[in-house]
Every structure is written in structure tokens, then in C-alpha cells.
Write a protein that binds this DNA or RNA. Structure first.
Lengths: 348, 348
DNA sequence: GTGAAAGCGCTAACAG
DNA sequence: CTGTTAGCGCTTTCAC
């Protein structure tokens, strides 16, 4: 499927530099720099002349050089496990938008679930000297913590809670989510429970908390299935197949199922329909993440929503506050826990 | 939902630089640089000593400084419209993995569909001096093309075809896809057609080509609906509601529907089920993208697969080849068209 | 195999 | 409001 064509790059004219613009506009290099970075400190007429030269020459500033000199790269790094999960997509999109509006570009790194060593990744990221960093999760090993401390940049951890964050935090209390879903099911009279959770730390926290709360309340936990991370619909279907014997006659009580992701929940519901298991009469289902799938499928299903878009927005705001801080006006390290809510939709 | 805590960064020790490592290992700075970049040119014993110093001091190289000096930042930029679409997720994941394995970090920029000016975005990206660039699509305005030419870096365009690519290309022939789906439906005896296409250039190309091919073959095109980009399940449901009058009695012929995304297709199928429209008897459906949803839903539905993971892999390979090229061993600009195939699953 | 000198392209800091 | 002088922390290039 290949077809060779040309062998050399296009017309190569020597790269235009800031001094070239300065010469063309008959000003000092520093004046060009000011036009680019602090235009309010340049006379309007001068700025105008410089801008014309910039346009005429097609000058694209070299932020690598600028970054070395000013020690500010105008890049913010973000490390998230995957983009295969709509929550991270919304998060990153909002984080990126908020930062771009303020002149920062986001360097996004995907860490996967366990396949990449975190310290190695963080080192590669910090080597590019980002001005700030967003990190998913709060469990980081000692070398990672040391590197982050040495880097001395604002760090915001997201999507988990911890007593001792590295710096700032926009957390989600997954244990509380799991317990809340258990309480919700209990309030609706359920006594038999099951949980499908993906093999990622946050999903496991939700799942364990759910099971623990269910047991604590005297309930029976029929199954605690672990699915590969990231979650898939197929994994939800498979897990429900394994649960089938507990759901079909002569099984007595209805089962309340909590899935760590809406993809798992959707898979479970598909499989339930295939096997003609009545939802929510014999099987009540609650997912997590509030994906479009849960609202637009028929029937729509119950889920837990955490405003991941707001988490991204909030994380960006925290970082921007700190980046704008001065010695005279320091900014406190901020920590918030993002709210969640159960969205009831008839599968429970 | 806030709780202030600390106001200053952690223990700040002065940043460790390459000369500090050199001093600690009693070698010249240049030797440390060689240990990092060309270890084979350093005596094993010396390298060992340097590595110990690096570890002991917790030295993290400054690639900004290195990049300025060597004019190689070891960053590759990628501009894609969205991550809300599984095709782009798979693409980016594979592109990133392939490049990271060779020491490059990917700078990902989301361009959206029309909300961000491409030239502005490309300027911001090029200002960071990436070593190479991946661009989605092949329609770029003159300023953008000029900037790319001046940047003189390898560029790979993806997901479209064109006679005159900027440089390298890993294309997808969307017009061919649309025509192929029309031919597929025709071969199964259909004469009445409809298409739901999102308002992005590639989806529109697929949709128009489908409608044109259907008409050329003497068929009737009942509807050409345009949905917002990126696609959603809800938009598919809404579009099918509008199509309903053509599907319910006294409508005579079955309708063959092509959707520009599996999300639209799934939405259409959900709505069809709600209205008890027999699939594929009265409504045959084919999606695009081969999302997991299409295979794992019940019933599974027909779709068109393009190996977006391979496109990402291939694009990375092309760029890496060129980045490794030398004046003595130049590398041709490569162009390929990625294959597609219709995956038949019973909704058609 | 190792080192010394000279920038890379920009901005901080200080003058004027 | 504008200019001058020194670097930022590395790597290139050329010696040894």
C-alpha cells in the first residue's frame, strides 16, 4: 500500500529570527520581544511597525529559546492513564481549553494502567520543563515525589483523595461513591449485591467500598468481579454471564449490581436482555461515569455522575492561580473534593 | 468545596545542572552530555561514575536547553480534532507509543471542529519547535502551508487523500468508502437510501459519495441529514425520528441507511427499536468506525472499519524514518492509503 | 576517549 | 518608552 514520491523538503529559506524582525523594523531585539510578550509597554506606532515586519517575514517565535531564557516554557503537562474513557476525554478537553485561553499549551502523556513506569514517565515529562503539572491519582512512589519536589512547579493531583497531597488537589472520593451506591440500593430494599470493577485503583476503591458498605449493612455480596482496565462493553457482558446462575430461577432475591464504568453496566444490561432477565425486577444496575451511552440507550440506565469537565476546569484554574502568583501576592495550595451524584434512570 | 492549606512550595534546593553532575563525577560537562546522548562513545568506567553522580544528585536533564543547542526538541506534535471519537483515541495511542519507544514525546493539540483557527494553532505548535508534525486532514490554508514549509520539518497528514500532500500521507479514501457502502447496499437489492453525516469534512465526504453513488445507480435518496460534530448517539436518534414517516406504513420499500459514525448508527438503531421498526427488513443500517459498541451491542451492527491504530503506527514510522535520515541516506516522502473494509453484522 | 571554547535564540535586569 | 549587556543550560565543533 505504498508509493514513494519526493525526497527533499520544500524550499528551505534560512529561519527567521527575532533579530531579523528587529532589523527589518529598525528597532532593538528587545523591543520585538516586548511587542510579543508585553505589548502594553511599547508605543503603539512602534508596535505597529514591528507587527508588520513579523507578518512580512512570517516570523514564528522560538519558545524553546524563550523558555530557556525566561525559565517559563508556557507548557503544562498532564498525565492521565487513557483517553479510552470519556471521563478523561472531557477532563482533558476542558483542561486544555482553559489553559490555551491563557497562552499555555498542554503536553499530554498517557500512562496506561501499569505498563509504563511512572517515575520514568515523570522524568521524561519534567525534562521538558513544564511550568505546571496535572497528575491523575495520588499514589506516587518516592522517586517520583522527589523529582516533583525538586522541580518546584505547581502540581495538581486529580480524581482521588488523600490526606497528604503533593500540592494541590481536585479529588473524587471513590470510597464515598461506592458507599453511596450501596446505601441507595439498600434504601430501595435490596439485600443481595454484586459488583463489577475494572482493574484500576480508583475503580477498585469504588467496588470495595460498595461491597464493604453492603456487607456492613447486613447484605449478601454474591460476586466481586474484576475486569481488565480500561473497561469494555464486552467485559460487562462476560461478567454478567458468570453471574447468571444467581439471577435465574430458582434464584430467590433480586440482585443489585454496581459497575465501575458505564461501559461495564451497558454490557451487563445487553447480556441481561439477551437472557430475558427483567431489569430492574430481577437485576438492578448502576453504572459510573455518566457517559452519553447511559442516557441515550434504551432503556436509559442509572449511573453516578462526577463532573469531570469541571474537574479539568478547576484543575486548570488552580494551576493558573499559582502561575500568576508573585512573592508579594502568594497563592495558597488549594484542595477541593468534587461532588458526585446518583442519576436515577430506571435500571434500578 | 474548598479548603486552603499550604502557601509555599516544598523544600527548594537549587536545581541540579549538568555541570553539577560533571563536578561530582570529576569529568567535563561534555562527558556527562555524552553519557546521556551517545553512551557508546564513553568508556564504561567513566560512564558508570557519571551515572552514579546522576542518580545521587537526582539530575533531570533540561531538554529545553538541549533543544536550543541541538535544534532537536525530541517532541513530535499531533493535531487532531477531538478525542471524543474512538478512532482518534486509537490513533493517538498508537502514534504516541511508537514515538515514545524511540525517545520522542508527543505534544497533542485538539483543534475541534471549526472553533479554533488552524493557522493560529499551528503557529502556537510550531513555536515549540517540534521535530515533526502529524496533521489531521489535507485542507490547509495558505498561511498554514507557508508556516509548515518554513518550519522545514517532516509532516504527515492523515485520514484524507489528496493529490498534493504537504509532505507524507497516511490517507483514508472517504469518497471510496461512501461509494463502497452504496454498492454493498445495492448488491443486496436496495433501491431506497438515506444518510446521516456529521458536520465534519471527512464525514461529509463519505455521506456525499454515498448519496451520489446511490443516485448514479438509479436509487432514491430519501434523506441526507447533517448532524453536529462530533457525533453523538442522541443525534442518531433524532435523525431517525425525522426519517420515521418514510419507514412506517404505508411506506413501501425498505430503506438502506449509512451513518458517518457508529454512534449515529447506534442511535438510529435504538430509535428504530423503540418504534418497532424491523431491522434489517424495513431499515438496513451501516455505521462507520468499528467502535466496540457495534460489535458488543445486541444485536451487533454492520460497520466500516479503517484500522486507525495502524494509521497511527504507520504515521509514526514514516516520521521516524525521516527523522533518522541523513544527507548521505535520504528518505523518500512516503504516501499510503489505508485500507477499509465493510464488516457485516446483521443490521443490513 | 575526553576536554575547551563558542554559541543556539531569546529575555532578565538594568540603564537611559 | 527603548536599548545594552549578560547570560539561560545545554551541545556543536574542533582539539588533544
Amino acid at each position: 500500500m505504498s508509493s514513494p514520491t519526493r525526497t527533499t523538503p520544500r524550499t528551505t529559506r534560512p529561519p527567521v529570527k527575532l533579530i531579523d524582525v528587529a532589523a527589518a523594523a529598525s528597532v532593538a531585539p528587545m523591543t520585538v520581544s516586548r511587542v510579543l510578550n508585553t505589548p502594553e509597554r511599547v508605543a503603539a506606532a512602534t508596535a505597529q511597525r514591528v507587527r508588520e515586519a513579523i507578518d512580512r517575514l512570517g516570523y514564528v517565535p522560538n519558545l524553546i529559546a524563550g523558555g530557556l531564557s525566561s525559565r517559563r516554557t508556557r507548557m503544562v503537562a498532564a498525565i492521565v492513564p487513557t483517553m479510552a474513557h470519556p471521563m478523561f476525554v472531557a477532563l482533558v478537553q476542558n483542561f486544555t481549553d482553559a489553559l490555551r485561553a491563557r497562552g499555555y499549551e498542554v503536553m499530554l502523556s498517557l500512562s496506561g494502567y501499569g505498563d509504563v513506569d511512572e517515575a520514568t514517565l515523570v522524568r521524561a515529562v519534567l525534562a521538558r520543563r513544564p511550568d505546571a503539572l496535572l497528575l491523575t491519582g495520588t499514589s506516587h512512589d518516592a522517586p517520583t515525589r522527589q523529582m516533583l519536589a525538586d522541580a518546584a512547579i505547581p502540581v495538581v493531583e486529580i480524581f482521588e483523595v488523600t490526606r497528604r497531597p503533593i500540592d494541590m488537589l481536585v479529588g473524587v472520593d471513590h470510597a464515598a461513591v461506592g458507599a453511596a451506591v450501596a446505601a441507595y440500593f439498600r434504601a430501595r430494599g435490596h439485600s443481595h449485591f454484586a459488583v463489577f470493577a475494572a482493574a484500576d485503583p480508583r475503580a477498585q476503591t469504588r467496588g470495595s467500598a460498595f461491597a464493604a458498605a453492603a456487607r456492613r449493612a447486613g447484605g449478601t455480596v454474591l460476586a466481586e468481579a474484576i475486569a481488565p482496565a480500561p473497561s469494555t462493553i464486552a467485559a460487562g457482558r462476560a461478567a454478567l454471564r458468570d453471574l447468571l446462575p444467581r439471577l435465574t430461577p430458582p434464584a430467590e432475591a433480586p440482585v443489585a449490581l454496581f459497575c465501575s464504568s458505564d461501559l461495564l453496566a451497558f454490557g451487563a444490561l445487553v447480556e441481561a436482555r439477551v437472557h430475558a432477565i427483567a431489569v430492574p425486577q430481577r437485576l438492578a444496575v448502576c453504572g459510573f461515569g455518566d457517559f452519553e451511552l447511559g442516557a441515550a440507550a434504551d432503556p436509559p440506565f442509572t449511573t453516578v455522575s462526577v463532573e469531570s469537565a469541571q474537574v479539568g476546569q478547576q484543575a486548570a484554574t488552580f494551576l493558573l492561580e499559582r502561575l500568576a502568583a508573585t512573592p508579594e501576592a502568594p497563592v495558597t495550595a488549594r484542595r477541593v473534593i468534587a461532588p458526585y451524584r446518583i442519576i436515577e434512570r430506571g435500571s434500578s
